[in-house]
Every structure is written in structure tokens, then in C-alpha cells.
Nucleic acid binder design. Structure first.
Lengths: 328, 328
DNA sequence: TTGTAAGCGTTATCAT
DNA sequence: ATGATAACGCTTACAA
């Protein structure tokens, strides 16, 4: 490990000069700069980020906290964030909470200890409820969900409008007895439920059932199974994310029901399975890339100007109509 | 940010003592320990990891380098690694190379600069070819692929055997004109091709075609399209990973061909789409969890004992027979 | 334009 | 059993 001292010695200057050359700061005599750069190259010197961060009290690392990287939505988001952050010379620490408030708290502490400069965060419902109590000096941006009572930058889908459009499409196609599946751990599940209900009521209908369950395939399956096996099975199922939709699909198929004749199915997010099944699934497409980039931008803006008023950026989803909701 | 100094002052001891109490090292008078712990709690002190790492020259961070977190296989792997690492108080830095050797080199440098204690690495073919030239003092474990000429711990599937079993199953089901799609960026693609060819030759057959393309849906689609539109279309397609299989599926469906009557399709890894399409896809299941855990274990072993001889752990895949390869 | 030196928060060494 | 102190690698006033 060659250090700045050895470079300084090799170039016949002080460590301060080396530091200045590397930071492209201050005025350095071109001749000196050359000598330093030559020494850097020859010794293959690479600055130690720990030393730098310790001294300057800022790191080039941000944290990304969400439920699970195996959820394609978050996987896509994390790529968008990583690419955007890398552009700015930042690396990203990814933390999976599994919607567990304890893990969430643990990881927020960890990120604090790691001296990240900022955090992009998809809070659980529980965090959101108690967020007023939470305090940190680390710049934070909420993504995909909001943190109630916490005045921080937020970027998310216009969930109520998107859900309302999706449910409206179903109703206007002639479906009447709609069951809704929603994630129980996020504000997003709540908002999409609201949009779902609004669309129904605007048309003089009531939902057959609205169920809040963990955003996992197995719980989507179980909840859909209960609906389908009940005394009054739905003629359409609205799933508030791709995992719940997958669970519902499995339950429908297991019962040899036909989509959409026996029961329609609509959800959120582009997935391979939603494209490949027959008929393919009608979904709201979220602009993942844009959500990730916007969040990263907002975070860097806040890092640069911590006292700036908090912004909320709301992005529009796009309805992709496919066979699973064909008009009856 | 309360530092160790303030804790020391509050407890009326030296910083050295605080450090020792927190490290659970040396013998400390119970009374002193209590005082220190009380001060720690009262001041909500959390050690600064930068200072610690800088001084002790070791961090509690490892790097994970692979092509793309959006590939479900790597997403699963990263969760297994993260969970195993977190058990040991380690955090994980994830780096996506997109199979680009330049990004790969960039990220390996970055991880070096970040002072990670170890790296779990899925090298590109190019890296593997030139790996003899690469040198680092950071403990490394290869995962899913191997680095030729580099004597490092490695954990991967028994790819030749798995591919051979999968291809053999196809042939024994009566399929004769087989086309193979393989990832062009990894040793894994090569090994699976070898197993594929061996199975054919052992039964006196030759492959109709073997194509090496980037492990992406679009390139799998394009390569399968060429096969299917050619003068001698295959009656079975062997895809060496789930992305290529998805591309092949899309090409098959677009041509209104029926699986498996017109053409069979087999691949690797459990995916939602592979389960939900009709008929579902026959695959080799890789023990993702175990691969990730084993790699993490090996890495920690090597960190503890750097001179230990390199191990190669080979895990068995499991054939899951489904409808896409039903005997003709 | 460049050098000197202090200090970021920690741990390790050497005393005591 | 505990305290002083140096050092990890770097940046940044302040001096020159």
C-alpha cells in the first residue's frame, strides 16, 4: 500500500502538494504538478478513502434501504441509483430490511456508522408512523413510499391516480365484483387501495374485498385463494404489486380458472412472467429508471444544500392494457 | 457525533480503556466496565467505523462483484451473501459490471480503495483469460465462474454434469436436433456447452448449433430467432441461463410454435415465468443460497488464514422435469 | 506557489 | 488493570 508520503518523497514535494494536485485545487506550478503525477503513476498510488473520509468528514458513499433486492422493482431501482451515483464517483451500500422494522433500524444505524453522506430509503409502514421520533443529520430521500411526519424529499408514483386508472379500466371493461390485494407494509399499498376504492365508488360500486398482506408471492397466493374459494368469488382481482399478482396468478391457475373469462387479473410493474403467460397481464408500468435517478439527484442536491425546503416529486404511471383484462 | 474521547471523559477513564471495553478485550475491572458502558449508553455513543478501520487496517466490509443484480440468480446470491456477512457484522458493497471488463477493473480498484477485507467475484471471460496478470493482496473468492490461472477459492455448480444431465434428459425424451444458447462472457457458458455436447456425443449425436451470446433476453431472443427461422430448425432448445431461456421463449411464442410439440425448451434456475407459462419449463435448479453461503464462509476462512491452500467447492444442480420437455 | 503541522476517531504499544 | 501516546492516511489552515 503506497501512501501519500511515499509519493511526496518520490516527487520531492510535501504531502500537502500531492493532495492539492490530486484534488485539482489551488494553483500548482505546472512543472510541480507533472512531477507529482509522474510519481503517482510510477508508484501506482491510489488514495486511501478511509483516510480521506476521516479527515474531510464526508465520504463518497450513499446507502440504499428497501425491503428486498429480489423484488424486481427494487432490483431495477438499485441499478438506476447505482449508475447515477457512480457517475458522481459514489458507491452504494444496499440494505435489505425484509419489511422488518428491527432490521430497518439496525441498517439505518449501520449506515450512520459507515459515515454515508446520504440515504435513499423506502420506509416500512411502522417507520412511517413513528417517523417523527426519528432524527438524523444524514440527508435522506424517501423512495417509492413516503415517511409521514418527516419533512424529507420524496419521489414516488402517483399511486392513487395510477390505481384508480387501473381499477377504472377493469370496471369499464365490465368487471363488477372486484377483490383487491395490497402490501401491508407500505404507504404505497394504502394509497393504491385508496385509488382502487375511489374508482369503484365513483362508479357507484363497492369493493368485494380488500386484503392487506405481506408483499410476497406466498401471501398473495393465500389471500387470493381465500377470495376465490369464498361464497362470493370476485370476477376481477387487483394486485398492488408484482409479487402479489404472481401469487394471485398461481391461485387462479391452480383452480383451473380462466383469465379473464372466469376472473380478470391486473397488477403493477413489467415482469417476464406477466408478459409470457397467456393471456399476458395488464399492468401499470412505473418509470423505475426515472424514480431511481430522480431520488439520487434529490439526494445530491440536499447534500449540497441541506437547508433547502423538502420537495415531493410525483411521477405518472403508464397503463399497459393486455389480455388479462379484456372487456367481457 | 460523540466520540470516544467524550465517553472517556464522562466515564473518567482514558480512551484506551473505552476501546478495550468495547472490544471485550483485556481484563477490565467490572466496576470500570460498568462506568464505561453507562457512559456509552447515556451519550448514545457509536464507534466511528472509519477511524477504526484506518487504525486497525481492516474493515468490516466485503465487496460483491458480478454482472447484474437484475439477473434473478445474482439477486438471490446477493441476499445469501448479505445475510451470511451480516451475521458476522460485515456489510456488503455490490458492484455490477454488465460483463464489461472495464467496469470490472474499475470496480475492483474501487473496492481496493474502499479497503474492503475481501471480495466475492464472478469474473468475466476476459478477466479469467488474463487473470494471471492480476494481483491483489485482498482475499478473493470466485463464485459461479472460475478465474483460470488464478489460484483462489472457488464455488460453483458442477456445470458440465448439470448441463449433460439436462441435455441427456432432452435426448432421451426423443429430441434429436438440438440447438444450444450459451452466455459468451463466462466460463460457465463454456462449461455448460461442454456438458451439452458431451451428452449428445455420448449418444452418437451432434449439436445442430451452439451459439455464444451475451446473457440477456434480447440476445437470447435474436439467437433463437435465427435458429428457428433457419433451414433446419431445432426440435429442442437448450438455454444455459434463465435470461437466454426467456429470450428463446419469446421467439418461440412469437412464431406461434407449440412447446414441446414443435420445439422443446430447457434452461437453468427457478423463475416465476418458467413456472407460470404453459407448459412450465424444465430446468436445472441451482442451490443459490448454498452457493452464496459457501462463498462467504470460504472468504472469511481465507481472511483468517491467508496462506491456506485454495479450495474449489463444486455443488450439484437438481433437474426439475416439467412439461416443456415432455417425451415425444 | 509550496511547506509545516494539526487533527479527523480509533487502536496498539509501551509504560506504570 | 489502566493511562499516555503514537500512528493509521489524509486534508487544510496557516506560514513562509
Amino acid at each position: 500500500m503506497t501512501s501519500i508520503k511515499e509519493v511526496a518523497r518520490a516527487a520531492g514535494v510535501s504531502t500537502a502538494t500531492v493532495s492539492r494536485v490530486l484534488a485539482n485545487k489551488a494553483f500548482i506550478r505546472p512543472e510541480t504538478r507533472e512531477r507529482v503525477l509522474k510519481a503517482v503513476a510510477e508508484l501506482k498510488y491510489r488514495p486511501n478513502l478511509l483516510g480521506r473520509s476521516l479527515r474531510s468528514q464526508r465520504s463518497a458513499r450513499i446507502g440504499l434501504v428497501f425491503s428486498d433486492i429480489r423484488n424486481p422493482f427494487f432490483a431495477g431501482l438499485s441499478r438506476a441509483v447505482e449508475d447515477a451515483a457512480y457517475e458522481k464517483g459514489c458507491s452504494v451500500l444496499i440494505c435489505n430490511t425484509d419489511e422488518d422494522p428491527r432490521k430497518e433500524a439496525l441498517y439505518l444505524d449501520l449506515l450512520h456508522d459507515e459515515n454515508v453522506t446520504g440515504i435513499i430509503f423506502s420506509p416500512t409502514q411502522q417507520f412511517s408512523a413513528q417517523s417523527a421520533a426519528y432524527h438524523t443529520d444524514i440527508p435522506m430521500v424517501a423512495i417509492d413510499r413516503y415517511a409521514r411526519n418527516l419533512r424529507i424529499d420524496t419521489v414516488l408514483l402517483d399511486n392513487i391516480a395510477a390505481a384508480s386508472e387501473l381499477a377504472g379500466h377493469l370496471i369499464d371493461g365490465g368487471y363488477r365484483r372486484l377483490g383487491g390485494l395490497f402490501g401491508d407494509a407500505s404507504t404505497t399499498g394504502q394509497d393504491r387501495c385508496r385509488g382502487f376504492q375511489e374508482a369503484l365508488r365513483a362508479r357507484g360500486l363497492e369493493p368485494l374485498a380488500t386484503r392487506f398482506v405481506p408483499a410476497r408471492i406466498d401471501s398473495g397466493y393465500a389471500a387470493a385463494a381465500i377470495m376465490l374459494d369464498g361464497p362470493e368469488p370476485p370476477d376481477g382481482i387487483f394486485a398492488s404489486n408484482s409479487l402479489l399478482a404472481a401469487g394471485a396468478f398461481r391461485a387462479i391457475r391452480e383452480r383451473n380458472l380462466h383469465i379473464p373469462d372466469d376472473v380478470a387479473l391486473v397488477g403493477f410493474d413489467l415482469t417476464e412472467w406477466g408478459e409470457f403467460v397467456d393471456p399476458p397481464i395488464t399492468v401499470i408500468i412505473q418509470p423505475m429508471e426515472e424514480i431511481g435517478c430522480t431520488a439520487t439527484d434529490l439526494l445530491f442536491q440536499r447534500i449540497a444544500e441541506p437547508s433547502r425546503p423538502a420537495q415531493q416529486v410525483t411521477l405518472k404511471g403508464k397503463l399497459l392494457v393486455r389480455g388479462s383484462s379484456a372487456p367481457r
